[in-house]
């Protein structure tokens, strides 16, 4: 039978109770242990129980006493999809692109803010240039960090939008908007840091504000790796 038809045999309301295990369909209709299609309050008829056997207090030998009534014949399509996700997860585990790439924006945004601060204190233009170049680098390298983060979110967390991920995504967008705006401003007005106009103030503010934004993104990242 097709996998999607299996759920019709859920053992409820007098329907037969079947479950699948390693591609075979077993009939446990009438079993005392599967009353109303439910087994130990946990497993349900009409489902594929292959992965759950290791959690059971018995081995798969108990199935030898059950009647096999059919096989699942759409195994192939399903397998390909699961395989592809498994392969992507494997690839991610091996190369972990997010922890690799996130250090560039992490280092560079902090460095940019530090250089800008030194410039505002000492008014040495080399500091201001250093801040600008670091800020460009930080903004550009935020892109691979965000892409690899989204990739991990997809393969490892099925894109489930929890508070942690919501915070990370929102503040990554904030970082990108601040970063790009700052770069454009400084590019259009090369002397912007020297002035005292609101525009000059805005440019420095963007450079400084990306530090807390970055910290929020990273802090929430740490919550994923070291959950409390």
């Amino acid at each position: 039978m097709k996998r999607e038809n299996l759920k019709n045999y859920d053992g409820k309301d007098g329907r037969p109770a079947y479950f699948a295990y390693k591609g075979k369909v077993y009939d446990i209709t009438g079993s005392k242990l599967w009353r109303n299609g439910t087994h130990v309050n946990r497993h349900h008829a009409g489902e594929d129980l292959t992965d759950f056997m290791s959690m059971a207090p018995h081995a798969e030998e108990v199935l030898e006493q059950c009647k096999i009534v059919d096989t699942i014949d759409d195994e192939v399509a399903e397998d390909i999809f699961i395989d592809r996700m498994d392969r992507l997860r494997d690839w991610y585990r091996r190369f972990h692109p997010h922890p690799v790439t996130l250090h560039y924006p992490m280092g560079l945004f902090y460095f940019a803010a530090f250089m800008q601060l030194l410039y505002l204190i000492f008014r040495v233009s080399a500091f201001e240039s250093a801040a600008f170049y670091a800020f460009i680098g930080a903004t550009l390298t935020t892109i691979p960090a965000a892409v690899s983060g989204l990739f991990s979110w997809w393969v490892n967390y099925q894109m489930t939008l929890t508070r942690i991920f919501r915070m990370k995504i929102i503040f990554t967008l904030v970082m990108l908007v601040f970063g790009i705006s700052g770069c454009v401003l400084r590019f259009l007005y090369p002397g912007i840091s020297a002035g005292t106009s609101p525009l000059s103030f805005s440019y420095s503010a963007l450079v400084f504000l990306n530090v807390p934004a970055l910290t929020i993104v990273a802090f929430n990242g740490g919550k994923i790796t070291w959950p409390s």
Binding site: R93, Y157, T162
Partner: peptide, 14 residues
């Protein structure tokens, strides 16, 4: 609870 379960899954895989 979703957050907790979600973070547990990659741990099991690893």
């Amino acid at each position: 609870m979703i957050q907790v379960v979600l973070l547990a899954i990659p741990r099991e895989i690893s």
